[in-house]
Design a protein around this nucleic acid. Structure first.
Lengths: 193, 193
DNA sequence: CCTACCGATCGGTAGG
DNA sequence: CCTACCGATCGGTAGG
């Protein structure tokens, strides 16, 4: 039971850290800020985590692991390339709605990682990008997609979806379903009539 | 002549600051880092700028002023809404190619602004968003655009374009013209055939 | 989980 | 434009 309590505290620290990093950036968040949010002294947090850097690592790799798992799921689907891309974008949006703070850290604060950890994160991200790019490339080759530059299409999609994490709140007048449908319409069918 | 020299140094400080903030974030960049990049001691920079916060302000408002000027230009064009939106997206991409570091700071580090300055920046950004949204809304009303949610379309476009600042380098195998054309195709005509 | 504290580094100033 | 330095705050540790 003490173990369950400890790991709950640890998770609380990670969750609050993600929120603060999103709000003020990794560099703009002090361990004293975080401690106040969690409800303990800064020194006490070191019973649950090793360092400020470890917090950043855990959040970043939680996000990149999730992304890669989603890619693997979609790759194994029996579907057209358009359907696969649609499924991957959908999962992307879903993750932002469910875990926006962590995604924000993985998008913006990963650059504060150092050494091997930084390299490992970059590698994970590149792997995801390559997998996504392959879907687009095959979709073009199969005649399902417009013959655009693959890199441009990839980053336009990944980027187009990013604002959700900054914007979406449960109180919005747009439901997650509408949101997903609207974004999908713009990216796949275009805004113009 | 001494005035010209001084303001050139000041500009150099601002340019190097934008690059460093983009690379390491405002919170992760020290005045000593910046001084080393500029080629003087930290203390000496205070002959050219008032504070670290002033540097951030100058960069952020340079960007927001440019955006608002571009919006005004486009609003005064005699053209269809689709053409206006196309023109505004084009200017957006152009600015990122020409002044990517400053745009990055205006996108990511504005949150380190404080007090009235922070409020003024938020107001400028909101003004730009409202102007852009109005173009989309009128485009839908005129039957030129798909009847999507205006906020979703606005942020999808603004966001879709943001990766250019992270990705574009003169050495890329894509020219600025191709880049613009490809992004425009995806956003306006859609990726799917 | 806290009090007390460490060395390092921060943004910025004084004085020349 | 530099040397020398300020008070404040940083991430983190010792010891209980």
């Amino acid at each position: 039971m003490s173990k369950r309590t400890n790991s709950a505290k640890r998770q609380l620290i990670l969750d609050e850290a993600a929120k603060l990093f999103k709000l003020k950036g990794f560099g703009g968040t002090s361990m004293r800020d975080l401690a106040a949010q969690v409800g303990m002294e800064a020194a006490s947090m070191y019973n649950h985590i090793k360092s400020k850097d470890e917090i950043l690592e855990l959040i970043c790799f939680h996000v990149s692991d999730t992304y890669i798992r989603q890619l693997t799921e979609v790759e194994q689907m029996a579907a057209t390339y358009v359907e696969k891309i649609r499924a991957l974008i959908g999962r992307h949006i879903q993750l932002m709605i469910e875990d926006g703070a962590a995604v924000s850290v993985g998008n913006n604060d990963w650059k504060y990682l150092t050494g091997d950890t930084l390299e490992a994160f970059k590698t994970a991200r590149k792997r995801y990008e390559k997998g996504f790019a392959a879907l687009i490339e095959q979709g073009i080759a199969a005649g399902e997609l417009q013959p655009v530059n693959v890199s441009v299409a990839l980053f336009t999609i990944l980027s187009a979806v990013r604002w959700v994490e900054l914007w979406y709140r449960p109180g919005r007048d747009v439901t997650p379903e509408e949101l997903e449908e609207n974004i999908m319409t713009i990216l796949l069918n275009g805004l113009a009539k």
